[in-house]
Simulated scan of single mutants.
Amino acid sequence: MKKILKGELTNNASLTAAPLTKDFFEQPTLSLAKSLLGCLLVKETEEGITSGFIVETEAYSGPEDQAAHSYNNRRTARTEIMYGEPGHIYTYVMHTHCLVNIVSGPKDKPEAVLIRAIEPFSGIELMKNRRGITDLKNLTNGPGKLTKAMGISMEDYGRSICEPPLYICSGFKPSGISQGKRIGIDNAGEAREYPWRFWETDNPFVSRHRKQI
């Protein structure tokens, strides 16, 4: 399955989008969090198709990571999909916002990568309408912002990230990758110090540029 997506920002050309295969998501979680940078996230809905290049991620390494939902093997209805095969979608609601993660790690080793920000590529007017804003820089520069802009919801929970309606394709190689502490996990003990947030260096669509190491 391939689609031709036309970029809507200056100097963006058309791109042939084909979902990445499952083996891409079978790499170690920290490696996956970096490898996802530059990939194209695509969501198909009845309203239209939206897409954007992933420019910021966070890694969560499961039972040993106090910041992870699956810390200490907390197996609940919410985290159940994390115990499955890598390459599935883990969505959850936090403070009324839906956040989207990609399940990583081997089966029964519940790890995930949070997608924190994207650089809009196609369907930008639809994204603006959904968010009710016109400021491009603030359109998708946060995990709750990008899901609302793209129409990602709890209905996507448990689906494969390798096929429509929500999938990831090859994109571009980041000019540079920065890393620092994850955000919003102040109660996670020593895990709050782990430098497991990754972003494309100097990309204007990243949620935060501070705390680089």
Results as ranks from 00 to 15, higher is better:
181 K>M: 10
115 I>C: 01
92 Y>N: 03
156 D>V: 06
134 T>A: 12
109 K>R: 15
170 S>E: 10
36 L>D: 05
99 L>N: 09
114 L>C: 09
138 N>R: 14
148 K>A: 10
171 G>P: 00
37 L>K: 03
80 E>N: 11
169 C>M: 06
178 S>K: 02
15 L>V: 11
82 M>E: 02
34 K>R: 13
94 M>E: 12
169 C>D: 04
112 A>N: 01
127 M>W: 02
141 N>E: 04
119 E>R: 12
92 Y>E: 02
24 F>L: 01
122 S>D: 03
183 I>Y: 14
111 E>A: 10
181 K>G: 03
103 V>R: 00
23 D>I: 04
143 P>K: 04
158 G>E: 01
170 S>M: 08
126 L>H: 10
80 E>Y: 06
111 E>M: 10
166 L>S: 00
132 G>Q: 10
154 M>L: 15
83 Y>A: 01
206 V>R: 03
83 Y>H: 06
208 R>S: 14
177 I>F: 02
26 E>Q: 09
91 T>H: 06
132 G>R: 07
16 T>D: 12
43 K>W: 03
88 H>F: 14
188 A>F: 12
22 K>P: 02
132 G>S: 11
200 E>W: 05
34 K>P: 04
88 H>D: 05
90 Y>K: 00
29 T>H: 00
106 P>M: 11
65 D>K: 08
112 A>W: 00
159 R>F: 07
15 L>T: 05
10 T>G: 09
7 G>S: 07
139 L>C: 07
120 P>G: 00
85 E>L: 14
156 D>T: 07
92 Y>H: 14
162 C>A: 15
98 C>K: 05
97 H>G: 09
172 F>I: 10
23 D>L: 04
31 S>Y: 09
120 P>E: 03
200 E>L: 04
137 K>V: 12
141 N>W: 05
25 F>M: 04
75 R>Q: 14
92 Y>F: 15
24 F>S: 00
95 H>K: 11
31 S>A: 13
148 K>M: 12
130 R>K: 13
126 L>M: 12
190 E>C: 11
85 E>M: 13
5 L>I: 02
55 V>I: 12
173 K>G: 06
188 A>G: 12
41 L>N: 07
206 V>N: 11
12 N>M: 15
103 V>T: 05
198 F>W: 02
7 G>C: 02
77 A>S: 14
59 A>G: 09
185 I>T: 00
108 D>P: 12
104 S>D: 08
173 K>S: 13
25 F>I: 02
161 I>D: 03
132 G>Y: 09
34 K>M: 08
138 N>D: 09
45 T>N: 06
74 R>T: 13
